[in-house]
Computed example of a mutant assay.
Amino acid sequence: MQTESEARSLAPETRSIGNTIRLTGWITFWVQLGLAVVSGLVLLFAYTGRGLTEQPNAGLGVGIFWAVCGVVVLLFSVYWDFRYTRIGKSLENPNPALHSSKADTTKIIRLGVFLSLVGILLTLLGAGATVAVLVAKSISQPPGVAITDPYKIIRALDVFVVLANVNGIAAHFIGTVTSLWLLERVHQH
């Protein structure tokens, strides 16, 4: 059992790491939420725009599917960032009974790393599928101005799917780097 002086000497370090986790959680929360909203809106626009055209493009449906999966994981990651803020706030509390243990904090941050890596994988699959469709469309067009098949035209809506996936990759990358940094900070204390 700790004496009162040991608890006081431990408290500034615990409060410091709590403050770091809380502030980092809030910054990452807002950055990832912004990127999730942008990705979601771009995907919504691309998906609804596909229904307005007469040109079926089944290949892009796979890219949209993986992008939507990436955005869903990104929304869960945003929730996880909010959870970091709550952990940080609990560690800043002067009552040591309310502090989460180092093992629990480490476990939660590791799950955040895993979550972000899964999100990167999903959005990379979406970006790869979409870019493959766009490359196939671009090389199937004959050189020159005349377009013989209107189904092989690369439309702006097709590029929006790539944009949504790239935003998702960036958001998950930020989440991964943040979680790894927090994990290192927790291990130092």
Rank of each mutant, 00 (worst) to 15 (best):
S101T: 14
W66A: 03
N165G: 09
S77P: 07
G168D: 05
L98R: 07
I169C: 01
T130V: 06
G51Y: 13
L60M: 06
T24Y: 00
A170I: 02
E4H: 14
G175A: 06
G49K: 03
V177L: 04
S90G: 10
Y84S: 08
F76N: 15
V42C: 00
V166Y: 05
S77Q: 04
L60K: 00
V72S: 04
Y79Q: 02
Y47F: 01
R15L: 15
M1Y: 15
A136V: 14
L52T: 14
I174A: 03
S77I: 12
L74V: 08
A171L: 01
S140E: 04
V62T: 14
Y151N: 11
G175W: 06
F76C: 14
N95A: 06
W26H: 07
P56E: 00
C69Y: 13
L98S: 10
L180C: 01
R22C: 02
S9V: 14
I27W: 14
L117I: 09
T148I: 11
E184G: 12
L182S: 03
Y151A: 06
R155I: 09
L35M: 08
S101R: 02
I153N: 09
G25W: 12
Q2V: 15
S101K: 05
T85I: 06
I21G: 00
A7G: 08
Q55C: 10
V166P: 04
I153Y: 07
Q2G: 09
L121W: 12
V118S: 02
A164F: 08
N57G: 11
G59I: 06
L74I: 01
F82E: 03
I154L: 01
S179M: 09
V31W: 03
V72Q: 00
V135D: 00
W80L: 12
R86D: 09
L163E: 09
I87T: 05
E13R: 06
Y79F: 10
T20D: 09
G25Y: 06
A136I: 07
L183C: 06
L43I: 07
G144M: 04
D158F: 05
A156P: 02
V186K: 10
C69I: 15
Y151E: 07
G126S: 09
T176P: 09
T28G: 00
R83L: 11
V118G: 04
L91Y: 13
A132C: 02
F173S: 13
T178E: 10
L23A: 07
A58V: 15
A58S: 15
L44H: 13
F45N: 15
H189T: 15
P150S: 05
K102A: 11
V37W: 02
V162T: 03
N167C: 07
V72K: 01
S138F: 02
S179E: 00
K137I: 08
G51W: 12
A103P: 12
P12N: 00
T178M: 10
V37H: 05
L91T: 14
L10H: 06
D104S: 13
